[in-house]
Structures are given as C-alpha cells and as structure tokens.
C-alpha cells in the first residue's frame, strides 16, 4: 500500500477521504443496503395493510389508510422504496447504456420517475389522511 502511494498522483488528503473517482465513495452501496434493510419490515407491514383493505369499500379503505400508524407506515414504505428503486435502476442503466447522451437522459428520466411516483403516492396518502 505504501508503494502505491509513492507512485500515485493523488494527494494523501484525497486518499484519506476515500471518496474515489466518482466523488461519492461507498454512499450508493450503503444507501442500497440501508433502504433494503428498512424495506423488509415495511413490506411486511404494507402486505398486512393490503390484507386489511381487500374487499372493503371506499369509505372503509379511507378510514383504514387515514389511521396515523397505517399512514406513517405507508409513507415510510413509499419513500424508502423510491430511494431504493431509484438507485437500483441507476445501476441497471449504467450497466447496459454506455453512450454518454442516452445514459445521461435515462439517468435523468429515472430520477424524474422515482420522484414523480414518490410525490404522487405521498400526496395521495396525505390527502386520504387529512381529508379532501
């Protein structure tokens, strides 16, 4: 390791920051793992909510989703899911699209999609919770 430092053009400060050429270090890796970990109990909670909703009419569904605990769990499920799927799709795009312009456009589209769907879900859950 000491030898590579001597022949390297990077300064000790750049090396100790450990953020690599992309400048973000292990941020993506950790976000993927932490959101994945959070998604396990949140997915199970979401499934329980869905089971409690099945076959119910509009009024009953609104009554269930607007309960604070249910709404909070749904919001956490949606927000965590959007971050997880946004960085997941980013990897897929980076793996298969190598032309610079299409890659950048698809990565931008990916961000728009995740935030767009996320905001739509969050707004709908809040509207169901707080009423029209």
């Amino acid at each position: 390791m000491a030898d590579t430092n001597r022949s390297s053009l990077t300064t000790p400060l750049k090396r100790v920051r450990g953020l690599g050429s992309a400048g973000s270090g292990t941020d993506h890796f950790w976000k993927q793992r932490i959101t994945a970990l959070a998604q396990i109990p949140l997915t199970l909670a979401f499934v329980v909510v869905l089971l409690s909703i099945i076959g119910k009419g509009h009024a009953e569904v609104v009554a269930i989703v607007s309960q604070p605990l249910v709404a909070i769990l749904m919001l956490l499920f949606v927000v965590t899911g959007m971050v997880h799927m946004k960085i997941g799709m980013q990897v897929i795009i980076e793996d298969y699209v190598h032309e610079e312009l299409p890659k950048i456009l698809l990565l931008a589209l990916n961000t728009f999609f995740a935030i767009g769907v996320g905001v739509a879900c969050v707004f709908a859950i809040l509207k169901l919770s707080f009423g029209a």
């Binding site: 799927m85 897929i92 769907v117 739509a120 879900c121 709908a124 509207k127």
Partner: peptide
C-alpha cells in the same frame, strides 16, 4: 427489481384513485 419499479405506477394510480 425492474418489474417492481414499473409496478409502483399501479400503487400510485390506486392511491390517487382512492384519494
């Protein structure tokens, strides 16, 4: 993973419809 990504549109549509 990719299927779930696009499937979130169903969740969003359902929530918006309910709201």
């Amino acid at each position: 993973g990719a299927a779930l990504y696009f499937g979130t549109l169903i969740l969003a549509a359902w929530l918006i419809a309910a709201a």
